[in-house]
Computed example of a mutant assay.
Amino acid sequence: MQDTAPQTEVLAENLARHAAKMAKKKAARDKIMATKEGEKGLVIVHTGAGKGKSSSGFGMILRCIAHGMPCAVVQFIKGAWDTGERRLIEENFAGLCQFHAMGEGFTWETQDRARDIAMARKGWEKAKELIRDPEIRFVLLDEINIALRYDYLPLDEVLAFLRDEKPPMTHVCLTGRNAKEDLIELADLVTEMTLVKHPFRSGIKGQKGVEF
């Protein structure tokens, strides 16, 4: 019969080394966390060519709802779409989350720049109203980066409002690809979604539950 004692000893040594390594890592992490005491309302940007910008923003909205935090969504581009997140919020959580669909589709669909600008302005005015509301803790500005990219809204005006008028404890998340560099500079938290592979390039259209 093979002696299992050496194997047991090796296993015990490996477990002890792992425990020591994790204890050291925890001590270092606890030391870092001890210096993080402040809280503030964040300006958050989700950008990049990859999928997940709006999805991540709506994930944060659901977190707020779960915590009983009043929140709001302003959609700048996808307002004409019947999306799952819009149905979910309006049918189940309207008491905690306002949903304002202000856009009418991507610019190549509307083919009316003047109308796009007017709708973007209307959305921005609603966004400012919601952000100023002291009861609302989180505001998602879905696809506003697209409106800024096409100059439907003045970037300087948006930056000045976020810098000077946003309440100190209100979080604001701005989604959409091609976020302006000045917005990225102003933001507290920026995530860039990197495109690695997408089924659209293989001829697969956007699908329910994945894209909308």
Rank of each mutant, 00 (worst) to 15 (best):
A80G: 13
A80P: 13
D82S: 15
D82N: 08
D82M: 11
D82L: 12
G84Q: 03
G84L: 14
R86L: 11
R86V: 14
E90W: 14
E90S: 15
E91W: 07
E91G: 11
G95S: 08
C97V: 05
Q98M: 14
F99G: 00
H100G: 07
A101D: 03
M102P: 00
G103Q: 07
G103V: 12
E104K: 14
E104Q: 10
G105R: 02
T107Q: 07
E109D: 06
E109I: 12
T110N: 13
Q111S: 15
D112T: 04
A114C: 15
R115W: 12
R115Y: 12
A118H: 13
A120P: 04
R121Q: 10
R121C: 03
K122E: 15
G123F: 00
K126N: 02
K126A: 11
K126F: 08
A127R: 00
A127N: 04
A127T: 03
E129I: 03
E129Y: 05
L130S: 01
R132E: 08
D133L: 08
P134W: 05
I136N: 00
F138A: 06
V139L: 00
V139H: 06
L140D: 01
D142T: 01
E143H: 04
N145P: 02
I146T: 03
I146Y: 10
R149A: 10
R149W: 07
Y150K: 09
D151N: 09
D151M: 02
P154I: 10
D156A: 13
D156H: 11
E157Y: 12
E157N: 09
L159V: 02
L162V: 03
R163M: 10
R163Y: 02
E165T: 05
P167S: 09
P168Y: 07
M169D: 10
H171G: 04
H171M: 04
V172L: 05
C173G: 07
C173H: 02
L174H: 01
R177E: 04
R177T: 09
A179L: 00
A179S: 00
K180R: 11
I184K: 03
I184N: 05
E185I: 01
E185T: 02
E185Y: 11
A187M: 08
A187Q: 05
D188T: 00
D188A: 09
D188P: 01
V190R: 02
T191N: 01
M193C: 04
T194M: 10
K197G: 13
F200S: 13
F200G: 13
R201P: 14
S202M: 12
I204T: 15
K205F: 14
K205Y: 15
G206E: 11
G206R: 08
K208D: 06
G209K: 11
